[in-house]
Design a protein around this nucleic acid. Structure first.
Length: 321
DNA sequence: ATGGTTTTTACTGCGTC
DNA sequence: GACGCGGTAAAAACCAT
């Protein structure tokens, strides 16, 4: 339980870090780059070199000369999100007994607010579906955090769950089960797949049930989920084994090669990826053991051996320039 | 339920540090 | 002797029928 909160914190730290460290250096004078929204250009602060132009201007098309004018002209509010059970659109009454100016409320007013709060809450989570969603989205969020999945996956998972709920797929199935299946499907669709085992780690439901529910949901919603691409596992494995970019690249090549020759088909994508990573490490003279790869990939050493022989054979049959 | 395929488990032999 | 690696056989898991 403390483990979950810890991983969530770690993940949040990571995301905030990545957004902050967006400014890169200028190729000419190594000054810092500044994004000029008005002209859609990325320019160097020091030498004025335009690094990129014709970017999309995501700002408003109007100009405001003071803050009141800005309020007047703006046509947007907070973005809606599928991650909240009511898409973030409902009213919330603050728990603090203060009015809009921060002044305390009279006793009479306080009682009134108390009643309003109670009823607002009752209406907000009115029927069983809403309550269901509320819990499920919490679960989705928790699992996605524990797995280090990006926000857009959480969004997709939420959408999938919402659809499942709308189509009345829930009766007979547990909320956790469907939530987990949604996360699994969303991760795969987004190209950042997690293996069933990894998913099982963070879910409260057994693997067999997850698999069963997943198949059911995919079929009923006719979701398009292609078999996971082995390549999408490579970066994760490579980085947890602390391999070089070169090895990672090499692993990709091996997989692409194998794909062209159809060595795939029927073999587990995870096993293929693990084998490619191991083979690549060998080819670039980096120290790794089959045991280590099998550890991070959750695949038996035997499978790695079998796959990586096949990969290397395929490589020989079709030499790359 | 069944049969075929893939993956895992467990064990063994070989070479090296 | 422990370790990394390769191979094998049998069991288990998986999938389509």
């Amino acid at each position: 339980m403390s483990e979950h909160t810890r991983t969530r914190q770690q993940h949040e730290e990571q995301t905030t870090e990545s957004t902050e460290s967006e400014s890169t250096a200028c190729p000419e004078c190594s000054g810092s780059l500044v994004i000029d929204d008005e002209h859609g250009e990325t320019v160097c602060e020091d030498c004025g070199l335009v690094v990129e132009s014709d970017e999309i201007d995501r700002g408003p098309e109007w100009r405001a000369f003071d803050s009141s004018e800005k309020d007047e002209k703006s046509r947007v509010g907070a973005p809606t999100t599928n991650m909240m059970h009511d898409k973030g659109l409902s009213t919330n009454i603050d728990w603090r007994d203060k009015d809009a100016y921060g002044n305390s409320l009279s006793g009479k007013q306080r009682q009134k607010m108390q009643r309003l709060r109670k009823w607002n809450e009752r209406f907000r989570t009115r029927d069983s579906k809403e309550r269901n969603l509320k819990q499920a989205l919490g679960e989705i969020d928790r699992m996605a955090s524990a797995l280090g999945l990006p926000e857009n996956v959480r969004e997709t998972a939420s959408v999938i769950y919402r659809r499942a709920l709308d189509e009345d797929l829930l009766p007979g199935r547990s909320i956790e089960g469907v939530s987990t299946a949604s996360v699994y499907a969303a991760a795969r669709q987004a190209g950042v797949p997690r293996s069933l085992d990894e998913i099982t780690e963070v879910s409260r439901v057994e693997k067999s049930e997850i698999a069963r529910t997943y198949r059911y949901v995919v079929r009923e919603l006719s979701l398009e989920v292609r078999p996971a691409d082995p390549e999408s596992y490579v970066p994760r494995f490579a980085s947890s084994l602390e391999l070089s970019d070169e090895a990672e690249h090499r692993a990709r090549q091996l997989l692409q090669n194998a794909k062209e020759q159809g060595v795939h088909s029927g073999k587990s994508p995870v096993g293929l990826a693990a084998a490619a990573v191991y083979a690549a490490a060998l080819l670039t003279n980096e120290k790794t053991t089959q045991a280590a790869v099998s550890e991070v990939a959750d695949i038996s050493e035997v499978t790695i051996r079998n796959r990586y022989h096949e990969l290397l054979e395929a490589e020989q049959d079709l030499p790359v320039a």
